[in-house]
Design a protein around this nucleic acid. Structure first.
Length: 544
RNA sequence: GCCCCUGUAGCUCAGCGGAUAGAGCAUCGGCCUCCGGAGCCGUGUGCACAGGUUCGAGUCCUGUCAGGGGCGCCA
């Protein structure tokens, strides 16, 4: 049982005994940054002083006194501090119980939640046009979207990953025309695609191939290949064309007409999106009878709502203007716009040799995502993309991320995991086994380094829950870096094996090491980064 | 002009309305008879500015300034 439940129950009982009515619905507990303030602290006296009609400091004092008379399990001290905080000092036994919980739960269970059980969520991400390879900027949305999906899965949701393919429209025609031009040895038109990949792909293209269909297949294959290399697997590749064939687009338009959500003007059909927070109304059907990009996308989201309860979209910052109209469209179709969460990833810029690499759609100058993965490796690419909040613009330094030096946090974390396995291997060679958990004396874990690991393990479930709720996988990255730091510190100060180590201590520490392994494995899996059991420095990669 | 994101240490960035704001890198200085040194320890005048809400604001609200992105019957 989480010690927080014990403390909260005790606080509520104490408040009742003190005649506080009503007892507040929520009793907040937090871990103070300052160790002098104990292991856990509640602000309940500050929060409820007003309704209780009491001075917060006096209420806190009364609460602390009352709790001190019959302290809850693990509690060895209760004090009032500052303006009225009630601070709990706990015996280390509460952390030893955490370790037992971690070991019993294992990597499959620790940090798993069930609040999403029964809820279907579709995470749509990447969704790049099939007119060229994915570039380095797409990598951020790809790794982010996949990690968000993993977080939802960890919280019990039923998750599907979807890639929406704009396989129809003028861009496809421009792409095909560009391929055809290069294949015929001609320059591409000004509004065509100018990248080097067009030249390369045109050279691959059979002479009798339909440039549009061949190019479409080629681009899709490129997308799938690089995404697979990053361990990103989509459940559904949803074709825009399929909705033309199925009538889904016509049906969506008909629904909107019945609801009075569209009108005709200047020969076009408009969506009344301004009635639901958009800056202005948007065209669905152009004057020439062709649908805009928005029309099939609305139909697509209508389709998704037929298959899921919650939709999560990942857009690049250059599409943020699209958010209001999509929410409006969903409202006009009778859905709750709050059930469509749209995450925006800020831009990625690239550096190589400290110089910014300019990306230009105009000239086709780009760094392909496949190049990034090839240069730095899948693990380093994923970890780096998930290092920062997606609200912050990111500078991705290819040389730095590729380098196997200590500036690179992914190796630091993976090394911690590899070290654990090294210890376990050595222990087995020496005939040391953990044995059964019930036979281990975890109370021998008293070193600050040991307790630090246990506190970190206790925080993991909260970090996972919050990362999911805020769709912020970088919080897992932050957690795992801290966990790795705690483990390296422990490794340095506390020997697990050796002649001078008491066998019971070795056993307890082997269980601690197992707990750390579980935590690292859970977090790395959420990030989609491998947890190697050994890793060796490339001797060619510099001396440190 | 309107919309979104950002402004925290020399640099890159974390930071859930709580008490004395953290990490990595960089700088300088320590630690290898020891489970892998891709490691550990020490070294820090910092929340853009001005109001407001609150017992309490880096965090929430308003405004200003600065940087990035977006504002099409393109996708």
């Amino acid at each position: 049982m989480d010690v927080r439940h014990i403390l909260i129950d005790a606080v509520r009982t104490a408040l009742t005994d003190l005649g506080i009515d009503p007892v507040p619905d929520v009793v907040q507990l937090e871990r103070p940054a300052n160790p002098d303030h104990g292991d856990w602290s509640t602000n309940v006296a500050l929060a409820s002083a007003k309704t209780a009609g009491q001075n917060p400091r006096e209420l806190g004092t009364a609460l602390a006194d009352h709790l001190s008379t019959t302290p809850p399990p693990h509690v060895v001290g209760v004090e009032v501090a500052g303006p009225g905080f009630v601070n709990f000092r706990l015996a280390d036994s509460w952390l030893h119980e955490v370790l037992a919980d971690v070991v019993v739960a294992g990597a499959d269970g620790w940090g798993r939640h069930d609040h999403g059980v029964g809820v279907k969520v579709i995470v749509e991400f990447v969704s790049a046009n099939p007119t060229g390879p994915l570039h380095a900027g797409h990598g951020r949305g790809a790794c982010y979207g996949d990690s968000v999906a993993r977080l939802y899965e960890r919280c019990g949701y039923q998750v599907a990953r979807e890639f929406y393919i704009n396989d129809r429209g003028i861009q496809m025609q421009n792409f095909a025309a560009s391929l055809a031009a290069r294949a015929g040895g001609r320059e591409v038109a000004d509004d065509g695609y100018h990248g080097q990949y067009i030249v390369d792909w045109a050279a691959e293209m059979p002479i009798d191939a339909d440039p549009l269909e061949w190019g479409y297949a080629r681009a899709l294959a490129a997308h799938q290949s690089v995404l697979e290399s990053l361990s990103i697997h989509f459940d559904t590749w949803f074709s825009e064309r399929s909705m033309m064939a199925s009538g889904a687009i016509d049906q969506t338009l008909a629904d909107l007409q019945v609801a009075g959500s569209v009108y005709e003007e200047d020969g076009a059909v408009w969506l009344r999106s301004s009635e639901h927070g958009d800056d202005k109304d948007r065209v669905l059907i152009k004057g020439d009878g062709e649908p805009t990009y928005l029309m099939p996308d609305v139909a697509y989201h209508r389709d998704k709502f037929g298959r899921a309860d919650l939709l999560v979209n990942v857009f690049g910052a250059d599409h943020h203007g699209y958010v209001a109209r999509m929410h409006a469209a969903m409202a006009l179709l009778g859905h709750d716009p709050g059930d469509l969460e749209i995450a925006i990833t800020q831009l990625v810029s690239l550096q190589r040799d400290g110089q910014e690499v300019r990306l230009s759609k105009r000239t086709g100058e780009m760094v392909e995502l496949a190049e990034v993965v090839d240069e730095v490796g899948a693990d380093a690419a994923r970890f780096t993309y998930l290092l920062l909040s997606v609200d912050s613009p990111q500078t991705f330094d290819l040389d730095l991320v590729a380098s196997q030096v200590n500036e690179n946090p992914v190796f630091y974390v993976q090394y911690a995991h590899a070290r654990i396995h090294s210890i376990v291997r050595r222990a087995e060679e020496a005939g040391n086994r953990r044995g059964s958990l019930v036979d281990a004396d975890l109370s021998l874990l008293v070193h600050p380094r040991e307790l630090e690991i246990l506190r970190a393990l206790h925080e993991l479930p909260d970090a996972v829950e919050r990362a999911c709720r805020e769709r912020a996988p970088h919080q897992v990255t932050t957690w795992v870096r801290e966990m790795a730091s705690s483990f390296h510190g422990f490794y340095h100060d506390c020997r697990v094996l050796g002649d001078g180590i008491d066998p019971a201590t070795t056993t307890a520490r082997l269980w601690l090491v197992e707990g750390a392994r579980i935590g690292l494995a859970v977090a790395l899996d959420l990030l989609g980064v491998s947890a190697p059991t050994e890793m060796w420095r490339d001797p060619a990669d510099g001396e440190n």
